[in-house]
Every structure is written in structure tokens, then in C-alpha cells.
Design a protein around this nucleic acid. Structure first.
Lengths: 255, 255
DNA sequence: GTTTATTTTGCAGGTTTTTGCGTATCTTAA
DNA sequence: TTAAGATACGCAAAAACCTGCAAAATAAAC
């Protein structure tokens, strides 16, 4: 994302420039504008406030947003956000430079996407448009969306087209959320289509990571995705000393 | 950009000179003009105020801006928002029940997605995750995202994978935005990858609709997407009586 | 060509705008 | 809870601005 730095601009010009940036990217950061326009952040803030009063944009902490546009992921409240962030951080530590990764959807995955550092070089396949859009801002990431039908509830891509596409790729690491995890049943889910996609994802990955908040442990759904021998890591927010965690130690590597 | 300093100019001459500068650079600084015209800044200011009152330019603190040239920005948001909505509405009227539709990305397309009624039954293929997410809320729509690499700037999916996937589908109607439209050059764009995807989209569609705000008419970019005989409709926000529109009537059906 | 009237210009002084920097306060993320 | 980052506020310097005025330039009249 390279913008042409501007110099010696009149106030009106700066304002116009800012509006333009907003139209292009739907948001601006005060810090970016300061560099781009070569004025202090104070001046940028004053500009943004003026434009905001004129109703041209929506001033927010750190910058401004387009008034007519809302990022879909900004309005999502995440349940158990702290836990999910914990999980996300552990998950990210598994990704090393140059890896090819595949991710599912869900809020945990979205949280993970948000926490992925700007300087990570990797290729990310995903079935979640939200994850893809979040990652699109990372300069060194190659983001590839798997094609297929968008599921209305889960906002991830699934269906036969997706399964077929997944069968054609090979990745190093696959990150999946889980609806149910049980020591006997393995990984389970309630939706048949979801199960098909997850199976396909696991199949195309050298190693699979299941990410799951502690409360979902020891709960089973109707359909089986896979058993523990098909997955390589289980990441939860629970401490390793937790008794729930201990049960799974024999079956899978728990982080 | 070196200007020829002028000396001993009459007021009228200075005014002409200033207007000329404005036409060339879209802005002038009082300080620059003072040096260039070898008169005091006060005189320059008086000149600018006079020209401003005559409506020849827009006086601002520090100099003046062109009036006729509305920046590629400035108010374009509000103004173009309306335009794009107009276009979007016309476009939607082309979709009938049960159709299979393919859409590109861009703000016009997003506006269109927002305006698609809740009760429309159709299948929508798209290369824009944003459009897909917007449409995911429509109960009777089947939304399918084409797979491929997510472009960071445009936030649409493109690349060879996308082109290949597009070659495997057949749709009734394809909606595309245009970067440049010119009566001789046809539809043009500035990015090679974009051109490849657009070509593939047009190829897989029985009929193609180009959506484009009036301003972009009669502007050409480096790369050619297609000529007018490959597209079926051109939708703009201009009235059908507009002379710009008339020119295209012979080549394509203009809405 | 000279004189007179008119316009234009530059300057001095005071006012306003704009901007950047410190400082204190607030937000956000970990 | 803490620390880093973003923000608001006040201030001061610089730049731009305006007003009035007298000198200079131009135009008009004689």
C-alpha cells in the first residue's frame, strides 16, 4: 500500500487528501497521515476533528473511519475474548516464517488473525472472508481465500466446491476451532457441511491444530470430525495444571 | 517545473498569469506568486481576492485553489455516493429471480450489495469478500465466493487461481466496475491482474454490465479489458440526455 | 507636455490563523 | 494493573491576513 507523500499542502488540500484516503481504504490512521502529509499528528487530529464536525468522516481513537462504511469485523463482540486471545497467541507461536497455513473461521480464528504480527512472512489459506480481510493489511502475507458457498450463520465458506478445492492444496499447518471435544468421541461438530469441510482441511494439512476454549472441553456434538490421532496439537486457555487438560495429555499434545 | 518570472506586469496581466498557474497546477501559494510576479504578498492577496469575488478561483488561507477542478477528492464522497447509489439501483433492476450473477468489487458494487432487497432469490458469485459478507445476510440468496489470492489494495480476489475458477463457471449476468471507459479504447484498467480477472469474468458470463460514474467516462488506462462489443450494458449516473452518454449509444446499450 | 484625478502598490501595525511542542489526561491492549 | 500510544489543552512562534495610509504608477484632462 504505497501512497504518494505530499508536501506543502494547504489545509483544504489536506482535507481533500484525507477524504480521498478514507474513500480508498475506509479508514485512516493519524500516525500514517502525519507521515504522509508531513505535518504533526496534532495537525492531523485537528484536521480530522474539523472534518468530523462537518460530518465527512467518523473520528475514532487512532484515526478516522468512513461514515458510510463499517468494517464487518469491528462490530463483532467476542465472547470470552481474553481466553481466545490466550489461545490465539499460543497458536501464532506455532507459525514460522515461510509456512503455508490453513485456517477455519470463528471468533477465535479472527482473534488470531488480529494478533498476527505485521512482519510475518507466510502464506495463509482461509475459508473465512473476515479472517482474509483482516490479514489483507499485513504487508508480507499472501492471503488466499478458498472458493465456495458462504454460509450465512458462520460466515465461512463451505460446500462441495470448497471441499474439492481443499483437496487440491497442501499446507504445513491447519488451525481449526472445535464445537465439541470429548476424550472418547474425539472432535465433533453439529453441522454436516462443517464436518465435511473440516475433514477436508485436516486431510490437506501436514499437521492440524485444534483451538478450543476450556468450557467446550468434554462436550460432544452429533457428528464426528476426526479422532485424536489425526490432530497434532490441542490449544486451550487452560493452565497445563488443570485437571481437564490432563485427561487429554495421553491423546494429543496440549498447549 | 520552472516558471518564468515576470516583471513590470499590469494588474490584468497578473490576473491572467495567476489564472494560468491555477489551470496548470490547480493551486497557487501567495508566497510563490509574490516571488514569481515580483510584487508584495499584499498585492497578490488583493489579486486573489478580486479573482475570488469574480468566481475565478477559490481563495484559501495561504493561497488559492482551482474552482473548476474538483479534486479527485473533495466532496466526491457524498456526491459520488449518490451517483453510485443511482447506478446500483439501475443495476439491481437487471437481476431477475433465479438468476446466476457474478460481481466484481469496488465501492459501487458494495453499494449495490447493500441495496439488494431481502426477498431476492438468486445465486451470486463474487470476487469480493466484502460484497459476500454483505450479501450473507440475505435469506434467499446463495452467495459463492470465488477462490484465489486476496489483493491488498482492492480487497478483491484475483490471480491465476481465480482466473481458472472463473473459467469453470457460467453465469447469466456479470457486473463490473470500470477504471477507464473511452469510446475508442473501450474498457481499460491500470492493473494487469485486474484485467486478467475481468476478462475471465466477462468470458464466463452470458451478458456483461459495466457500471461507472460519469466522471470516469472518456478516460483511458494503460491496459485494455475489452471492447464494447463484448459488453451488453453500460450503467452510469448521468441522465440519458447527457451529451457524454449520447456518444456511447451507438456502441452499447446505456442505462 | 503638464497638471489633475484615479488607481495601484507597498508598508506599518495590529489581528487572526495555523502549527508544533510540552504537559497532563485518557484509551487500549497485554 | 501497567505501559505504550493517542488525545486534549494551553501556549508561543511563525505565517498569513486585514486596514488604513501615503507614495508611486497610471490614466485622464487640460
Amino acid at each position: 500500500m504505497k501512497e504518494i507523500p505530499a508536501s506543502g499542502m494547504l489545509k483544504k488540500e489536506r482535507h481533500a487528501y484525507i477524504i480521498n484516503q478514507i474513500n480508498l481504504h475506509n479508514k485512516v490512521l493519524s500516525s500514517d497521515l502525519s507521515l504522509l502529509l508531513k505535518v504533526s499528528e496534532d495537525t492531523v487530529r485537528r484536521d480530522l476533528n474539523e472534518l468530523s464536525e462537518k460530518g465527512k468522516l467518523l473520528k475514532v481513537h487512532g484515526g478516522a473511519l468512513s461514515k458510510s462504511f463499517h468494517f464487518p469485523y469491528e462490530q463483532i463482540d467476542i465472547y470470552a475474548q481474553e481466553s481466545k486471545r490466550e489461545i490465539a497467541k499460543k497458536a501464532i507461536s506455532l507459525i514460522s516464517e515461510g509456512m503455508i497455513v490453513l485456517t477455519g473461521g470463528g471468533t477465535t480464528m479472527l482473534e488470531m488473525a488480529r494478533l498476527i504480527p505485521d512482519n510475518l512472512k507466510a502464506t495463509i489459506f482461509t475459508i473465512s472472508p473476515l479472517v482474509a480481510l483482516e490479514l489483507a493489511e499485513r504487508e508480507f502475507l499472501t492471503v488466499i481465500l478458498v472458493g465456495g458457498q458462504l454460509n450465512k450463520n458462520s460466515q465461512v465458506i463451505m460446500g462441495s466446491k470448497t471441499v474439492r478445492e481443499l483437496s487440491e492444496i497442501r499446507v504445513d499447518l491447519c488451525f481449526l476451532g472445535a464445537n465439541g471435544i470429548d476424550i472418547n468421541e474425539g472432535i465433533t461438530d453439529s453441522d454436516w457441511e462443517v464436518v465435511q469441510v473440516k475433514k477436508a482441511m485436516i486431510k490437506s494439512a501436514a499437521r492440524t491444530v485444534i483451538m478450543c476454549i476450556g468450557e467446550k472441553l468434554n462436550s460432544a456434538q452429533k457428528m464426528k470430525v476426526c479422532s485424536f490421532n489425526e490432530i497434532d496439537f490441542l490449544i486451550t486457555d487452560l493452565k497445563s495444571s488443570n485437571h481437564k487438560v490432563q485427561e487429554y495429555r495421553g491423546q494429543v499434545k496440549v498447549l
